[in-house]
Every structure is written in C-alpha cells, then in structure tokens.
Design a binder for these strands. Structure first.
Lengths: 330, 330
DNA sequence: AATTTTTGTGGAAACGTTACCACTAAGCGC
DNA sequence: GCGCTTAGTGGTAACGTTTCCACAAAAATT
C-alpha cells in the first residue's frame, strides 16, 4: 500500500538499516546518503511516526491542556508553546477542557496513552489537588495556576500583586466601595481574590468578593445582579478577559455609564479593551513569556529530572484607561 | 518499565490476545472480561497508542490545519470539530499556519507522517492551487476557503451573498462611497471582494477594493492610510474580525467618529463588536455548523470514497448595529 | 447420535521502524 | 608489517499492539 523504508532500501540498493541511518543520525557515506535521498524522492516515502515512536520509545510530543481555548490568554500561551516546541523538533497535542474536571481526567489518560514526553497543564482547582506527581510517568509544568506545595514546576502571574495594583489604582482614583468578581474554578481566581482582599484591608476598606463559574454568561448575570442592588459598588475588579466582556455587557444593558456609574478594572489586555469607550484598565499578562518559560522549565526538567521544582512568578503590567478615571472630588 | 499488555495478561492469567479482545471487540466471556479489567486496574495499564496505531493501521486521528488560531472564527470552528471528533472516538491534531505557505507544506507532510484518517484544512490561495487530491493518501475537507473546481469537499460561507447583503445594507442607509478591505491570502477575501464589487456595480456605484496581508497591524495601517485621504470613503466593508479591530483602532487614532465620519460593516460577530460604541454591523457566521458540517463531510467521504465531492454553502446572518446608522438626508 | 455452527481461547505473525551486534575495509601509531 | 581503532554497512531482534489461524468445547442443527 503505502511505501515504507524497505521499499526505499530496495530502490536505493542498500539495506534497511542504512536507510534508517541516512535519514537520521549515524555514520553514512556522503554517496550513499545521496542515493537514499534520491530514493526517498523517487518513491515519495514518508516515515511512519507511529512506528518510529514505538520503536524508539521517544514520542517527541508534548501535551498542552488548557482550560478554555476561547480565552485569548490561552490561545496566546498556546502559540508560544507551539513555537518553542517546533523549534525543538517536538509536536504539541492541544486539548481543551472547558474547566471540566471530567474532561481533564479524560485528557490526562490520553496523554499517558500517547506517551507524551511532558505536559503543560492549566488545571482546575478540583484536579490540581488530586494530581500526584508520581502517578504520571512524564513531567508536568503548571501554567497560570499553582498546585499545593512545590510539587510541580510552575509559571504564573503574580496574581496577588496584580490585584493589589488594581486596588491601589482604584483607591488612588477615589474609589472606596470596590467589589471583586473571580473565577470559581481556578487557583488564579483564589489568588486574585486574596490579593484583592488583603489590599483592601491594608487600605482600611472592606472588600466583597464573589466567585463565578467560568463563562461569559455567568459573569454577565452575576454583574447584572450585583449592579442592580441599591448599595452597588462604585467599582468592579474583574478576574479575567472573558468576565470583562460579561461585565461590560451587563453595564450596557442596565444603562450604567463607565466609569461614572460603575468603574471597571480587570485582567488580560485583549485588543478590544482599548477599543470600547472608555477603554478598560487592565493588567497585561506576559503571555509570550509564560509560554516560553513553561517550555524552558519542561526541557530543564527532562534534562535534570531530580532537580528541585521551580516556580516562576511573573509580574503583570497595569495599563490605566478611562474605565477607572478619577472620581470627581465629593 | 511501563506496564504493557503482556503484564496485564500475566496478572489476569489469560493470554495476550484475550486481553486485547477484552479491551476491544471480540467474543470474551463475561468472567474473563471482569478479570482483565481488574488486572488493568491493578497494574495501571494504559494502552500504547503508537503500537495500536501501527498494528491496526488505523490512527483514529484527524488533522485540522487552520490559518490563524488567534482568529476567533477558527477557534470556534476548531472547538466544533474537536467535539464532533471526540464523540466519534477520534483525536484531533490542530495546527496553525499563520497563513504561511511554507508552514502549510510542513504541516501537510506532518499529516502524512501521522497517517491521519482525514484532514480539515483552511488553506491559503497559494497552496490551494498546488493541492492535488491524489498526492495525499487521505481525504481532505476544505473549510472557509474553496479550491479550484469541485476537487474537494468544501464547507464555507456564501461570501458573495454576504458581501452583497452588507453593500445593500449600507446603500439603504444612504452610503454611496463604500470602500472594501479584504484578506490577501485567502480565496475568502477574493470571494467577498467579488460579491462586493458585483453588488456595487448592480447599484450603479463604483467600488474600490484593497487587499491587505492577514494581520491586525496591516489592516490598521491600510485603513489609516485610506482614511487620511481627502476623498476617503463614507463607509468601509471589512473582510474579517481581525481586520475590524485594526479598522476601529485606526478610526480612533485619527479621531474619526463612527459612523458620522466613517461607517463600518464587516464579518464575524465577535463578542466585543456589540460592546464598542457604536456597535459594529457584522455578518455572523454559523461557526458551529461549519465545524460540524466539515466533520460530517469527512465521515461521509471515508464511508464512500468515490462519491462525487460536495460543497456546502451556508448563509450568514446580518446583524445591524450603530456603526452603519442611517446618514442624515443631504 | 452425528453433524455443523458458534463461542471462547491461546499461539504466533505481522505493522514499520530503530538499535544492537557482527563484520569488513581502511586508517593510524608503533 | 602488525595490532588497534574507526567508518561504513547489513542482518536481525526488538518496540507493544492487533489480527489471523487453529483448536477445543459447547451449543445448535440435522
């Protein structure tokens, strides 16, 4: 049916092992290498990766499991990972869990069956606790979300700091009654909540944090409900780019002006956040760096499996826009 | 090292072939199946997919090559494809070409080496012409972009109709001098241009179409240049969601009001298009349907390889918003 | 009761590679 | 000129599965 290495060997007039060497590593005379390449072209031979992986026990594949591919944060990280991987001659298997622990489990076993070399993973809170390092036979690098203890190599944003930055920013603009909307399924949400509450307390203010399921609709509903209350906050701190969409939508629907009726600050510097009127104040995450750094950690781990785990904490950049314009002095 | 089917057989006290049958198809007594499953649990056995694929000659894998994963259109289609694939017990290999023919070629050979069962592909104009059906040994379904002749199964938007709808809409709102910005690398851009020009001509108007490389920056620059001209158009028809970002950005930068100074209509109903002020008039594509339909065409092709190729053309839905508000009567 | 079919099982040969080993011929140091 | 390494090559045994075949026992058919 399809042409295999044997056919190439026959056409090139050499042995199978010589073809294998000519195509990969190993001592082969220039002359023979030439012949083999000619035979490959003549026959249209394409190596069978399944066979190669089986025999060599090296899949040259890394897994990437993200929580939500619609979230531009993860697409960006994914691209960075992919670029780094292909430069290193590796393939990437990208999977999307929609923050669903069941799908996470499904994909984790898939990764084992694929015998991936390593895994980059943004798990939900539910599975990050269940995740034992020794149960999987490949190294894992967590991104965006931290596990308990220093069990895994990790690269994430300094979420507490970032939240504090936003709180400081809002307070300096005159806002005191600040509410916070956080993702319920990720440790990221928890950390950002903690940073927010701590910063509020430090300023002598009391915060109110609400957790929301990870969807635009949920964020919109939660925001709408909150903003209908008579004692609604003056400002909302919003935990990710998807939620921002929902919050702005809710404000529009209720006819609330930003920032006069409700100020908004959040995470993820998506292109549209500067196009809405007013622009949204956000923390920009170093998405490229996160992806690249995750790959670097993974490669390092593969090279030195027993080194102590590392946690790379990156700082976000606060981009102030009109959505948090200073309150007129009362 | 890792546990294999032999280990399971030993633990279960049966032969290797019986384990294989118990795990897959084939007549196995209920009692033995039970034992085998117990042994699998006890040993923590995970089948080796490379071995399975090699032996069975069925990879149960479909390839998905898209032009730009940052484009929400493609993420949405990707999700739909993935869902359908997993429901059918298949895996998806997702690749992103950035509209680069070299990377398209790279990934096409990858698909061959992976021995994918089938491929769903959104090619650039450059490669769609070079693509011979018989050179690849798996069926291809084109999405979003059409090939020459009826060589491949295809599912795409009725681009000419959609462009015409937008033109009609703009004209009915009083706009006459309408420019068009189209993607240079896709047949989609060409089709939308054609639909636009035809509709303009039919209305007794002359259109001006400009082609732009596929990036936000390119679109922004092109729009900025165009809108600086003294005889700038009254309205811009914009070929995709990424370009829309650039165009709105350019308008903001130049201090032009939408729609008073420049009306905007485009493709792809991304969430933010209703959040900007004014909202953007867009053609909404049936992204879910496109993905599902592509999978359906692929499965049909696998079942009946010699059936005539089919082309599924779907209609978009026009969502009118403030960016094309009626011109005040002159 | 004799036969044919079905069900359940084990043994062994693939699938397409790479990696190991053995071997020859050539190059090198003495 | 004699050992000793080294470059280049071919044969063959894996890698972990599935699938084919053979076969026995049980069930169904005559």
């Amino acid at each position: 049916m399809t042409v295999n290495i044997k056919d190439v060997a026959r056409v090139a007039g050499v042995s199978v092992s010589t073809v294998s060497r000519a195509l990969g590593e190993g001592p082969v005379s220039a002359e023979v290498r030439e012949q083999v390449q000619a035979a490959v072209r003549a026959t249209g031979y394409k190596p069978n990766l399944s066979a190669r992986r089986l025999r060599s026990q090296r899949t040259q594949t890394i897994g990437l499991i993200v929580a939500d591919i619609r979230n531009p944060f993860f697409t960006a990280v994914g691209r960075a990972v992919e670029d780094a991987a292909y430069r290193a001659g590796m393939r990437v298997i990208l999977c999307n869990t929609d923050e669903d622990p069941a799908r996470e489990a499904l994909y984790l076993t898939l990764m084992q069956e694929e015998r991936v070399t390593g895994l980059i993973f943004a798990p939900t809170r539910a599975t990050v606790d269940r995740l034992q390092a020794d149960a999987l036979d490949f190294p894992i690098v967590l991104i965006d979300r931290a596990g308990p203890g220093g069990q895994f190599d990790t690269v994430l944003l300094d979420n507490r700091e970032a939240s504090a930055t936003l709180v400081d920013h809002l307070v300096s603009r005159g806002y005191n009654r600040i509410g916070g909307l956080f993702g319920a399924t990720s440790t990221t949400g928890v950390e950002r909540r903690d940073g927010y509450l701590t910063a509020m307390t430090a300023r002598g203010l009391t915060g109110e944090a609400r957790f929301v399921p990870p969807s635009v609709e949920a964020a919109e509903n939660a925001a709408a409900a909150w903003l209908c209350q008579p004692d609604r906050p003056q400002a909302l701190l919003v935990s990710n780019g998807l939620f921002l969409t929902g919050v702005v939508k809710a404000a529009r629907t209720l006819g609330l002006r930003i920032p006069q009726d409700i100020a908004v600050a959040g995470f993820d510097n998506e292109p549209w956040t500067e196009l809405v009127e007013p622009g949204l104040t956000v923390i920009e995450q170093p998405v490229e760096t996160i992806g690249r750094e995750a790959m670097a950690l993974l490669f390092q781990r593969l090279k030195t499996p027993d080194a102590p785990t590392r946690k790379v904490v990156l700082s976000g950049r606060c981009i102030a826009r009109g959505s948090t314009a200073a309150l007129p002095r009362a």
